[in-house]
Design a protein around this nucleic acid. Structure first.
Lengths: 331, 331
DNA sequence: CTGAAAGCGCTAACAG
DNA sequence: CTGTTAGCGCTTTCAG
């Protein structure tokens, strides 16, 4: 490995000069700057990021810990984060907590040990312990879900979206809307259920029908099966995320029910496939890219300013996109 | 920040003892081991991963550089990599090269500087320069696409899969199968086109119709538009990846063509939505999870053995899954 | 079995 | 403007 002292020897200057020249310090003569650059080039020198980090007590990588890599919602967020990170010369270390509190804790530990410059986290639950990070002084911004700790957050009005979805189902003429939401300990699951409940209660004479299930596709099949097996089965479903929705479709088809005729469906998240399934899926779209971009922007500010200022909370809105799956049409 | 010397003071031992105790070195008395553990606990000590890496000249993180985070094929690979990495005490740094040679080079530089223990890369093209990594002695395994450099690889028989897809289209009764493949410089795009061409030529009397497009959804839109606008338009499409397939569906619908009646379609990659679009999509499925798992296994071996032994090449097979989109049925 | 001390490669005072 | 030097926090000889 060629190190800075090798370059110094080759360029016949001190290591300090090499460091300065390579880091664009203005008070180094053009002549030496050139000699250093040439020597470094000739030797194929690459600075050792580890050593630099140790000395500087900081890294130029941020961590993004998301709940599920296979969920398009989170990959869209990832793109938002990446774009603004790159604009600011930061790399992003993506971690997949997989809706698993243990993995989440592991990754939190890893990024703390690696002394990343900051972290963006979609916490599994508000109880996620980020005290360690806080003690270490590593800036954190929470996305998608709240944290009991007082940190910057960028969220979407999940509850409002859920209410909109449910109201839409009711307005479309369905009589027994139900809700398939995520695991009980996930905040987004609670919020979406709460929105559903608000809408249903506001209408007075409607039954409250809901079930908790995993946020994965198989959660959707289980949830749908359970609801559809019940004595007073629902005639419409508000589903909490797009992966579950796929499972719901699967199960509903298996039972030979016709979506949009026998059963109305609307789901959270405008997945890329939503317009193309049969029938096209009505959705509550979340501004995923913007969530990522805003979170990264907030984080970069914290990193640059060294944590000053009070915490900021950003709330983004969802938008209802009506397609066919939620319409009540005669066969 | 509490450092090792603080723990040493608290436990009234030397820093060396703390280091040994915490790293499970057997030649430290049970008594001291306990005292150190307690002191560390009391102080909330977390080892500094950066410092450790600098000293050890190695990290316990590997990098996975993929071509596109939003492609389910790559997220499935990611899961495979993550699972075996975790089993081996490694964290994975996921980087999204985004089918962009510049971003790819940037990330390659970053992971080199960060001195990761190894990297798994799906190279944009065989020409991707990994010489730097090689010089640094960082193990590398290529996935999904070849590299001109001689490294471990795990690939799938793309060409065979493409041939199977095309033959299936022909066997189903379509007369003018065409191919929408990826960008000209992407190897997977070339291979899938080659497989298509082989099948078509083997049948003698068939036209060779194809177009290159981006691997994204809008690539599918453009490709389909271009092909369908041509004078002698195809009556069936073999599409090179699932994101393009979504675009193809979009464009085909816009034109009012009926898939499975007017037009046959089959695509690479069994995306989660494939069974649920209208009509259900026939696909060539790739063992994505296994690709990731095998690649990680290979990488871990290299890391452990310090690069010894000759390079290994693994070839996985695809499987044809026939659903409705490729069937020729009367309206 | 334990401690003292030498660096890993780099940056940032501090001198000159 | 350039060079010398002291560490960043940790692991690992080398002594004891």
């Amino acid at each position: 490995m060629v190190k800075i002292s090798d370059v110094a020897a080759e360029a016949r200057v001190s290591v300090a000069t090499v460091s300065r020249a390579l880091n664009g310090n203005p008070r180094v003569s053009a002549e030496l700057r050139r000699r250093v650059a040439e020597a470094a080039e000739r030797l194929g020198y690459r600075p050792n990021g580890i050593a630099r980090s140790l000395r500087r007590q900081s890294t130029d990588v941020i961590a993004l810990i998301i709940s599920d890599v296979s969920n398009p919602f989170f990959t869209a967020i990832t793109r938002g984060v990446e774009d603004v990170a790159r604009q600011n010369g930061l790399s992003v270390l993506l971690c997949n907590a997989d809706e698993d509190p243990v993995k989440e804790a592991t990754y939190l530990g890893v990024v703390e040990q690696q002394k990343v410059a900051g972290v963006i986290l979609s916490p599994h639950s508000a109880a996620t312990d980020v005290g360690r990070l806080h003690d270490t002084g590593i800036p954190l911004v929470a996305i998608d879900r709240h944290l009991s700790a007082d940190v910057d957050t960028v969220m979407v009005r999940s509850r409002d979206g859920a209410r909109d979805a449910t109201n839409h189902l009711i307005d479309a003429g369905w009589h027994r809307p139900a809700c398939i939401t995520g695991p009980e300990d996930a905040e987004t699951a609670q919020e979406r259920l709460a929105g559903y409940l608000e809408a249903v209660r506001a209408h007075g004479n409607l039954a409250e029908i809901f079930v908790h299930a995993s946020f994965r596709q198989e959660g959707g099949v289980r949830g749908a099966a359970q609801l559809l097996d019940a004595r007073n089965a629902p005639d419409a479903l508000f589903v909490a995320n797009s992966q579950q929705a796929l499972g719901v479709i699967e199960e509903v088809r298996r039972r030979g029910r016709r979506i949009g005729v026998d059963l109305g469906i609307i789901t959270f998240d405008d997945a890329p496939w939503a317009p193309f399934v049969d029938p096209p899926m009505s959705v509550i779209a979340q501004p995923a890219y913007d969530i990522g971009a805003q979170a990264a922007t907030l984080l970069v500010e914290r990193i640059r300013t060294g944590m000053q200022g009070m915490t900021r909370h950003s709330m983004l809105s969802t938008t209802l996109i009506v397609r066919e799956s939620s319409r009540l049409s005669s066969p």
